[in-house]
Each structure stands twice: as structure tokens, then as C-alpha cells.
């Protein structure tokens, strides 16, 4: 059968493209550096962490297989005050969901209405997000300074001298003092994500609701919230996983758990177990519990938000 010139050209094109984009050798060249890197630096270490968690090991001597004993020590025997670190994680997660996100949402709604100076406020609110947690930590160390920190100085100016305290040294205030900078720093991030979500809703929907005489509270409840549910899921996931992973500020602000273990967090506990107590197996078990929580949170939130997807 004779082919038309067009068909021949088309066939040639297919062959050339197939050869170009289907060659096993080229694919290997493109993929291998990434695969090797990722396998060596991420994949195998994860497997290794899981494996370590079933052993008793000090990093030097012999490894002894002890099954789930490390997990039992943590979860049942509350070794190294594991449950205090979990309690602190839960408090931070609740702060994220109950304080940080609602505030961010209100800011996002107000700014998305297109008020004057919208860009300015957005830029300012977001600025702390780009600064490293170590700068934030050291800055708050100064802010909380009992004698010359602005917090106590402002309180004194307001005549509230009785409220001044050594914020990070006082076991009653240390946890709040540790968590406040985190809430403060990432409000702008959540605001921006929710703002982007709201802006992606077509303005006509809002307009027609307004024409129908809907109140702002109704609009927020019936339109805004359901429409940005996926973004809320992203924020909750990021915020709660962030709470589980807290490490930097705990090291910088409260010397990893001080005073008296009141501000202990899970990643900080893992650090102590591995690098201070030399308990590699136990520390790995703590890190595996951290991963499990992160995955659980992601999956549970996906389930919860499944029905809200349009």
C-alpha cells in the first residue's frame, strides 16, 4: 500500500521522537543521578532508621535485637518523659489549629476584599517567614531577656511590673514563650496560603451572593470556607507536621527542654537520646514515632477533607 507523503512524514516523525525520547540509555542517563542520590541519602537512611529502632545499640558496641522493646519503653514506660514531649506537641498543634489558623484566616479574608494597602500588609505579615528560625530564636532570646528585653520593658511601662518574669526560666511560662515565636512567625505563611485560595475563587460567586443580600458571615461560611477547604487542609497539614518536628527553637530558646523538662519536644528528645545518652536504638524509635505521626496526620486530614472536595 502506498502512503501519502504526509503519512510518511508523520511516521518518520514518530520514529525519530520515539528514538529520542524512548531510548533506554538516555532515560538512564537522565534518571540515574537523581535515583542514586535519593536512594543513598533519603531512602536507605529511612530503612536504616526503622531497622535501628528494633535494636539496643550505643553506636560503638554490638547491636542487640530487642524487637519492640524500644517502643514499649517509650509508650508504656514513659522513658525519658516521652509523653511530656507528646503533650507539648499536642499543645503546639492545638495552638496552630485553634489560634494561628483562625487569625490567619481572618487576615486573609480582610485582605482579599481588596482594601487599600493590601500589598503592604501582606508583605509585612509575611516577612518573618523568610527569616531563619535561628535568627528568630536568638531575637526572642533578647526579647524575653528579664532585664533589657522589650517584653518586660513594655510591661513595666504599662505599669504591669507584677507580670514581668524570666519568661524562659520560669517553668510556668517557658512553654508559652517557646511556642509564641512559632505561632508569630508562621501566621503570615498561613495567611498567604489562605489568601491565595480565596483569590482563586471566581469573584462572580461573591458578587452574586452580595446581590442576593447575603451577609458577610454567611458568605464566609457558605462560600469561602468550603471553597478553600483544600487550602485549609494544606495549612493544617503543614502546621501540625511542623509542630511534630519542632527542634531549632527548642535548642536555641530553652536549651532543649529546660527548665526542668517543661519544654521537651519529640525531636529534642530524639537528639538527647542519640547524641547525649548514646542510645541509638531508642532515639531511632523516637524518630520512627515522629514519622508515623506525620504520616498519620497527613492521612487523617486527607480523610477528613475528602468529603469537602468539590
Amino acid at each position: 500500500m502506498l502512503s501519502t507523503p504526509y503519512e510518511i512524514q508523520f511516521g518518520v516523525k514518530l520514529i525519530i521522537m520515539d528514538k529520542l525520547l524512548g531510548s533506554k540509555k538516555t532515560i538512564a542517563i537522565f534518571v540515574l543521578p537523581g535515583v542514586i542520590f535519593f536512594t543513598l541519602m533519603i531512602f536507605i537512611p529511612i530503612i536504616a532508621s526503622v531497622a535501628f529502632s528494633f535494636f539496643e545499640w550505643d553506636g560503638i558496641g554490638k547491636m542487640q535485637f530487642i524487637g519492640f522493646q524500644n517502643f514499649r519503653s517509650l509508650l508504656q514506660d514513659n522513658i525519658d518523659n516521652y509523653w511530656i514531649s507528646v503533650k507539648n506537641t499536642v499543645i503546639m498543634a492545638l495552638l496552630t489549629a485553634g489560634v494561628q489558623l483562625p487569625l490567619a484566616f481572618i487576615l486573609a479574608v480582610v485582605l482579599s476584599e481588596g482594601i487599600k494597602g493590601e500589598g503592604f500588609f501582606r508583605t509585612v505579615y509575611f516577612t518573618p517567614v523568610v527569616v531563619s528560625s535561628s535568627v528568630i530564636g536568638l531575637l526572642f532570646l533578647k526579647i524575653y531577656n528579664p532585664d533589657y528585653g522589650i517584653l518586660n520593658v513594655i510591661l513595666k511601662h504599662l505599669g504591669l511590673e507584677s507580670l514581668t518574669t524570666a519568661w524562659l526560666g520560669n517553668p510556668k511560662t517557658a512553654l508559652a514563650a517557646l511556642f509564641f515565636p512559632i505561632v508569630w512567625q508562621y501566621i503570615g505563611y498561613h495567611m498567604l496560603l489562605l489568601y491565595a485560595g480565596i483569590k482563586s475563587i471566581s469573584p462572580e460567586i461573591f458578587e452574586s451572593a452580595k446581590i442576593d443580600g447575603a451577609k458577610l458571615s454567611t458568605i464566609v461560611r457558605k462560600i469561602t470556607l468550603p471553597m478553600i477547604a483544600p487550602m485549609i487542609e494544606v495549612c493544617l497539614t503543614l502546621g501540625i507536621i511542623g509542630s511534630i518536628k519542632i527542634f531549632d527553637l527548642s535548642i536555641i530558646l530553652t536549651n532543649n527542654g529546660e527548665p526542668l523538662g517543661a519544654t521537651l519536644v519529640q525531636a529534642g528528645l530524639m537528639y538527647k537520646q542519640i547524641f547525649q545518652y548514646g542510645m541509638y536504638g531508642l532515639g531511632s524509635a523516637t524518630s520512627i514515632l515522629i514519622i508515623i505521626q506525620c504520616l498519620l496526620v497527613t492521612v487523617i486530614l486527607q480523610r477528613i477533607f475528602k468529603n469537602t472536595r468539590i
Partner: peptide
């Protein structure tokens, strides 16, 4: 392959720190 790489996004640094440190 893409899914394999995406696993990495969900994994916190704590999960790999000790093996990396040892290596």
C-alpha cells in the same frame, strides 16, 4: 518513579539524621 521521589516530601529530617550522621 515520581511517586518514589515524592515520598521524600513527607519525610521529616529526623527520620534520616542518625543514619546520615553514621555514614
Amino acid at each position: 518513579l515520581l511517586t518514589f521521589f515524592l515520598l521524600g516530601i513527607m519525610i521529616p529530617g529526623q527520620a534520616i539524621i542518625l543514619p546520615i550522621y553514621i555514614t
